[in-house]
């Protein structure tokens, strides 16, 4: 359930994770601010090029784009009708406004462009490497450590959860809309919490035995090579061009 996408051999796989993080972050912010459809389309094409370079499979892409497009789809049900503007056509007594359709289109392009970049990031970097790069980017140490521990133990907790669900199923539990179901789920959550609490105590003691003083040391060192710099400059230039296109209203 928590699988990361497969990391296929590509140029992006070997780039410095710090660079990737910075690039994706700045791209997301700029695209979130952009407001004109031609520029947004440019950004979408740019993101698609990245997806092609990262060799993400279509199946994976569709699977990961669905959650975003669900909210976008939900907004499409409303925005064309509620956005003030001149009516495009009528659906019964409701008028679909030109501006509303435009606005909803903008949101769809924006969401998908940013998400594509994010998928590229996840598809070319393991989550642990991302954590280490957070550390290198001076994000507070406590947050980075919390991130590591949470990610490390999600899988363990998931196993506990699966064990509990298995034992519930063996005893013939069926989820329905009634108090018994909710109580059972609540007890299960309580049990997961209790087990995690006990495990936390054990892990902490074991760590103390091994001399834990509140620091985690990374064996990974990052080095910025020539190709990292080149790609960083290239992408930053493209992002600036997007910004200028938006600002100067050239297209």
């Amino acid at each position: 359930m928590f699988e990361e996408p497969s990391h296929k051999e590509s140029i992006l796989l070997h780039l410095d994770p710090r660079i990737k993080r910075v690039v994706v972050f700045s791209f997301s912010i700029v695209v979130a601010i952009l407001n004109r459809i031609p520029v947004l389309l440019c950004a979408l094409i740019f993101a698609l090029l990245f997806v092609l370079t990262a060799k993400v499979s279509i199946k994976e892409l569709i699977k990961r784009l669905t959650p975003v497009n669900m909210l976008v789809g939900f907004l499409w049900l409303f925005l064309p009708f509620t956005f003030p503007g001149k009516p495009l056509f009528y659906l019964g007594s409701l008028s679909v406004t030109y501006e509303g359709v435009l606005y909803a289109t903008k949101i769809s392009i924006k969401s998908n462009a940013i998400m594509l970049m994010m998928i590229v990031l996840v598809a070319t970097t393991s989550i642990f490497t991302l954590g280490h790069s957070m550390h290198a980017l001076r994000i507070p140490q406590k947050i980075v450590h919390l991130f590591f521990f949470t990610y490390r133990y999600i899988h363990v907790m998931k196993r506990e959860y699966v064990r509990l669900v298995n034992s519930m199923k063996i005893r013939g539990f069926k989820a329905k809309t009634n108090l018994h179901t909710y109580k059972t789920f609540a007890y299960m959550i309580g049990m997961i919490l209790v087990r995690s609490f006990d495990r936390a105590q054990r892990v902490h003691n074991a760590m103390l035995c091994r001399g834990f003083k509140g620091n985690l040391y990374s064996l990974k060192t990052f080095s910025i090579k020539k190709r990292d710099m080149v790609s960083l400059v290239l992408v930053i230039v493209i992002i600036i061009v997007l910004g200028v296109l938006e600002w100067k209203k050239t297209i």
Partner: peptide
């Protein structure tokens, strides 16, 4: 700093618990 392992494991438990589907 010393509480972080404990808190991390608790937050992993909460993360898993939020994935439960309830009818």
């Amino acid at each position: 700093q010393n509480d972080i392992p404990t808190l991390g494991i608790l937050s992993a438990a909460f993360f898993v618990a939020t994935l439960i589907h309830v009818p």
